[in-house]
Design a protein around this nucleic acid. Structure first.
Lengths: 117, 117
DNA sequence: CAGCATCCTCAGGGATACTG
DNA sequence: CAGTATCCCTGAGGATGCTG
């Protein structure tokens, strides 16, 4: 389900609401890094997502106005995803978290995934 | 359960891991705003949390090194919670998200909660 | 006051198979 | 290629009651 429409306690609450979902922040990140991406490209960039989850999370992000979805009526079908303006600004806000998280990974000596199963 | 110890895809992943949990970011926020807080004070500041959840989330934040818990051996018991250094820096990273979220609340015309049952 | 112990619900998410 | 459609299961989180 996409983000609720409030009521919210504060901005953090609203932002976390929109970004909660196992893959959403990662999808945003991926789109910010690469710009426009096709479905299969995203799938490859997020090792471990199932098709179902990827579609679902993308649709919710679209519904919340963070991602733009463009369908090209071709055979074979092509669908491209990109961030909207709000998606871009959310990503900039997430960047600070990314830095903090990277430091935490160092600190606790966690591994980074290259390819999960 | 507290945050896993990786492996992580990236910093965002690690940060979201630590902050995911329905009340964690709100607890962090509350502690940043007020400094040291007692259990009951936090409870009052987070309308809608159950005792169980508040304890649980606090313990996980403690386990992850973001919150410091101090018990005073008195009767009646007193327990104070405060952010650690890492908690403070995480909160600073969350601030950007808070701003974005506040703008989103404006944009979609969502309500803000004052008191949820 | 600041918890701990239980029980229970429900929806987020995984696995698998099929389609325009 | 880019999805639908189903079934299923785990576990986060809620409700309630008890305690040092």
């Amino acid at each position: 389900m996409a983000a609720r429409r409030g009521p919210y306690f504060c901005g953090i609450d609203a932002a976390m609401d929109v970004v909660s979902g196992k893959w959403k922040s990662l999808i945003l990140w991926e789109l910010a890094e690469h710009g426009v991406r096709r479905f299969a490209q995203l799938r490859r960039g997020l090792p471990g997502v199932s098709e179902k989850m990827l579609v679902q999370q993308l649709r919710e992000l679209e519904e919340d106005g963070l991602v733009h979805r463009e369908v090209f009526p071709e055979v074979p079908p092509r669908v491209e995803y990109a961030l909207t303006g709000h998606g871009v600004s959310l990503n900039e806000a997430l960047a600070a978290l990314g830095v903090w998280g990277a430091e935490r990974i160092e600190r606790i000596g966690a591994e980074k995934v290259v390819y999960a199963s």
